[in-house]
Simulated scan of single mutants.
Amino acid sequence: MKMRALLLATSLLISAFGAAQAAEIEKPNLTLGVGGKPLLYYLPLTLAERLGYFKDEGLTVEINDFGGGSKSLQALIGGSVDAVTGAYEHTIRMQEKKQDVRAVIDLGRYPGIVVAVRKDKADTIKSAADLKGAKIGVTAPGSSTYILVQYLMKKAGLNPDDASFIGVGSGPSAVAAMQKGEIDAISHLDPVISKLQDLDAIKVLVDTRTTEGTQQVFGGMNPAAVLYLKESFIKANPNTVQALTNAFYRTLKWLETATPEQVAATVPQEYWLGDKDLYIKAFNASRQAYSTDGNIDEASMKSALNLLTTTDPDLSAANIDLSKTFDGSFLAKAKAKQ
């Protein structure tokens, strides 16, 4: 009887400890927005979900997939999602609009965006300077794919309104738009780009999936996908934000050593666009773009700011405090936990 009582007491103690741990998470049920979840740009999100890392942190995360990054940002500002995996540049743009939105971990150190031209236009469109009058496909107007091609055009002496921008989505619809001749050029991500390359439908002009290609465009790193939230949510739910950061940092470390075959086996098969080998090829092409430590340094912040001020003359660098766009305190704790 004493042993039974001891076991019961131990069981109750463990349950109480578990309940106390669960109580630490202020909001265990979360809604997270993303603009094109199947894209390799957002691979760490899918991996964190599929590997069970959110659940391990005591979180139940509902993922809402929007048509593009700009739409997921709108959902965060509107209050229909709690957090977003989206482009770091959104944290800068929101500060200009007096909206305090902060990244807590970097998922992609390079944009991973490719600008390419339809193969039968390759003789006339050889660089960004030749995009005048072109119909350019992007994931969605206002998204990072849209902003990057505008940046390239401005550097080449063109204005953003010198071309037409068409939202083609993030999956098969983007491939179809190019195949049907609905667009002359495309600014997009993998696996869409690798699929179009495999079809011999495009010629690449700019490639920021790699270290070399990103340095050619920006002169260094340029942060891409991050986890960002409203500062008000961060202050009200610090343990929840820590749990999210822990899950994503653990994912980055898994991704650092995972084989392409392991990655392909982890994501949903529909992400392969009907071809597993092609997905593996696409992952290999984009692998350098993923962050290994989750941090955003000052030089990378300035690079992102320059991208925005170049494309938007109304955005003044003087009004931006870059230190408020990234909160590294949660990342530091996540690293200490690993």
Rank of each mutant, 00 (worst) to 15 (best):
R4A: 13
L7M: 10
A9W: 05
T10W: 12
I14T: 13
I14H: 09
F17I: 15
A19Y: 10
A20V: 14
I25V: 13
L30D: 00
L32F: 08
K37C: 05
L40D: 00
L47T: 05
L59Y: 03
S72K: 11
Q74I: 11
S80R: 15
D82K: 14
T85L: 10
M94Q: 15
K97F: 14
D100R: 15
L107R: 04
G112F: 11
V115I: 12
A122D: 03
T124P: 00
A134N: 11
T145M: 02
Y146I: 03
L152H: 13
K155P: 12
G167R: 13
V168Y: 00
P172V: 04
S173P: 00
E182K: 10
E182N: 08
D190Y: 03
L199H: 01
L205K: 12
V206H: 12
R209W: 05
T210E: 03
V217L: 07
F218E: 01
G220A: 10
A225Y: 04
L229R: 13
K230D: 02
A236T: 07
N237M: 05
N239Q: 11
V241T: 14
R250G: 01
L255C: 08
T257H: 08
Q262W: 05
T266R: 11
E270G: 02
K276G: 06
N284C: 06
Q288N: 07
Q288H: 07
A289C: 03
L305T: 08
L308A: 00
S316M: 01
S316E: 02
I320N: 00
I320E: 00
L322S: 01
A332E: 13
Q338W: 04
